[in-house]
Simulated assay, not measured.
Amino acid sequence: MLPVAPSTCYDHLAKRGDPSRLSARARRDETLRPGGLCVFEENWRVYGAQKVWRQLSREGFDVARCTVARLMKGMGIQGVIRGKPHRTIIPDNKAPCPLGRVNRQFLVSAPNRLWVSDFTYVATWKGFVYVAFVIEAYARRILGWRVSTSAQAGPRSGGS
């Protein structure tokens, strides 16, 4: 039924029956999972990969932080994210959505035939900064930009 070779299926069943046939990484993961889960549970399910990794290091486990992050993701556990979530864009569902005029065909044969725009935001220590760009599609150069602390259109606040 599945497009899997029978030998792959038999190999998988053999590894489930005999853990010594697992790869070194898989065997190590099996020994680390209970420790990581125990650290996570003992700390009220709030520790993220960084703090779980530090605690495992204190307990004598020599493991990389990225390995702890991978194992936590595989187990479906995640630390608590502090602070309130930021809503950067609030859509206006009543406003009509403009149609794309180039149907995502950004290849042009000559300069100044197609200009496109982009809008993005960057998180800083003082809050979000919003940036709008106008890009010439042929040369892929930024023709102009504008930076603002608000996503709303208003008086000029920077750029060229």
Results as ranks from 00 to 15, higher is better:
L2V: 08
P3K: 13
P3R: 13
P3C: 10
P3A: 10
V4D: 09
V4S: 09
V4G: 07
A5W: 06
P6R: 12
T8A: 14
C9G: 13
Y10F: 06
D11Q: 14
H12I: 05
A14C: 02
A14I: 00
A14H: 08
K15M: 04
R16H: 09
R16D: 10
G17R: 15
D18T: 06
D18L: 10
P19R: 05
P19Q: 04
R21E: 10
S23N: 07
A24T: 09
R25S: 14
A26C: 09
A26K: 13
R27Y: 04
R27F: 06
R28H: 10
R28I: 02
R28T: 09
D29N: 14
E30L: 14
T31N: 09
G36V: 09
G36D: 04
L37P: 05
V39C: 06
F40T: 00
N43E: 07
W44F: 14
W44I: 09
V46F: 02
G48S: 06
A49W: 13
A49Q: 08
Q50N: 13
K51V: 01
K51A: 10
W53F: 04
R54Q: 14
R54Y: 11
R54M: 13
Q55R: 15
L56C: 07
R58H: 12
R58A: 15
R58V: 14
E59Q: 13
F61M: 10
D62T: 12
D62Q: 14
V63A: 07
A64C: 10
A64I: 00
C66A: 13
T67A: 08
T67H: 04
A69W: 06
A69C: 02
G74P: 00
M75L: 13
M75H: 09
I77S: 05
G79R: 04
G79P: 00
V80M: 09
V80L: 10
V80D: 03
R82V: 03
R82L: 08
G83W: 02
H86C: 08
R87I: 07
I89R: 14
P91S: 08
N93G: 12
K94G: 15
A95Y: 02
P96D: 12
C97H: 12
P98A: 04
P98W: 00
L99K: 11
G100S: 11
V102K: 03
V102R: 08
N103M: 11
R104G: 02
R104H: 07
R104Y: 04
R104P: 01
L107I: 07
A110C: 06
P111S: 01
N112P: 02
R113L: 11
V116F: 05
V116C: 11
V116N: 03
T120Y: 01
V122Q: 10
A123R: 11
A123Y: 09
A123D: 11
T124V: 00
W125S: 11
F128R: 13
V129I: 08
V129H: 02
V129C: 11
Y130L: 03
A132I: 03
A132L: 04
A132E: 04
F133G: 07
V134D: 05
V134G: 02
V134K: 05
I135T: 02
E136L: 01
E136N: 00
A137M: 00
A139N: 05
A139M: 02
G144M: 08
W145R: 05
W145H: 07
R146K: 13
V147N: 06
A151I: 13
A151W: 15
G154P: 03
P155N: 12
S157A: 14
G158R: 01
G159A: 03
